[in-house]
C-alpha cells in the first residue's frame, strides 16, 4: 500500500522535474524560467525525501529557493525583456545542442539500464543527519574546512568583481565604456548625455537672448 503511493509520488515528481526543467528553456518570461527551475529542484528534493535522504531533501528546498530568487533578480537586471512580452529566441546552434543533449541522455540511460550496480540499500535504522555530522567532524574534516576557504575566496571574489563602490571611490572611476561599433568613440553614459543636453539647451537659450 505504502509502496504504491511512494511509486506514484516518485513518477509524478520525476515528470514534474524533467518537464519544468525542459520548460525553462522554452518560456519567454525569464522570471518564470528561473522559478520553473526552482520547481524542478523542489521535485528532486521530494524524490530525495522519498529516498530517506531527509536532510538533503529539505536542505535542497532552502538552498535552491535562495539561489533561484537571486537568479530571478539577475534576470530582471540583465534581460531587456524579463517578462517576455514579445516572444524571443536567443539561441545559437540549437540543433547541435539538442543533438548533444539527447546523445548524453541516451548514453547515460544505457549505462543505467545495462550497467550492473550493487543492490546495497541504506540500512533502515540509519540516521542520515547524525552520520553526516560525525563524518564532518571525523574523516572529512579537511573537506569541510577547505570548503570554508573556497567559500571565503568566493565571497571576496564576488565583492571585488561586482561591487560598484570600492573602498577608494567608485570602481569604474577613470574608465570609459567601449565604442558602440568596434574602434568607434566611447558610448556615453546617461549622465554624460544629460549634461550634454543641458549644455545644448543653455546655448540655445543664450542664443535666443542674444537675438532679442
Amino acid at each position: 500500500m505504502v509502496g504504491i503511493w511512494t511509486d506514484i509520488t516518485f513518477y509524478l515528481c520525476a515528470a514534474i522535474a524533467v518537464f519544468s526543467g525542459w520548460r525553462v528553456f522554452r518560456t519567454d518570461s525569464m522570471v518564470r524560467a528561473s522559478f520553473l527551475l526552482l520547481i524542478s529542484f523542489l521535485a528532486v528534493g521530494v524524490i530525495m525525501l522519498l529516498l530517506a535522504a531527509v536532510y538533503l531533501g529539505t536542505a535542497l528546498f532552502f538552498m535552491m529557493a535562495v539561489e533561484m530568487m537571486v537568479m530571478a533578480l539577475f534576470m530582471v537586471m540583465f534581460m531587456m525583456n524579463p517578462a517576455g512580452l514579445n516572444p524571443m529566441n536567443m539561441v545559437h546552434q540549437p540543433w547541435v545542442a539538442a543533438l548533444l543533449g539527447f546523445a548524453v541522455f541516451t548514453g547515460l540511460s544505457l549505462v543505467a539500464v545495462y550497467g550492473e550496480f550493487p543492490a546495497n540499500p541504506a540500512p533502515a535504522d540509519l540516521d542520515p543527519v547524525r552520520s553526516l555530522g560525525r563524518e564532518l567532524l571525523g574523516d572529512s574534516m579537511l573537506v569541510f574546512e577547505s570548503a570554508g576557504i573556497a567559500l571565503l575566496a568566493t565571497m571576496i571574489g564576488t565583492v571585488v568583481l561586482s561591487s560598484h563602490r570600492g573602498r577608494y571611490g567608485p570602481a569604474n572611476e577613470g574608465s570609459e565604456p567601449p565604442g558602440l561599433d568596434p574602434g568607434g568613440p566611447p558610448a556615453k553614459s546617461a549622465a554624460q548625455k544629460q549634461q550634454q543636453r543641458e549644455e545644448q539647451k543653455e546655448q540655445e537659450e543664450d542664443k535666443q537672448d542674444h537675438d532679442q
Binding site: 522535474a17 524542478s40 539561441v91 545559437h92 545542442a97 548533444l100 543533449g101 548524453v104
Partner: peptide, 11 residues
Amino acid sequence: LIGTGLYGALS
C-alpha cells in the same frame, strides 16, 4: 535532467 541542462547550456 543532465541532457536537458546540457542542451540549455550549449544553446
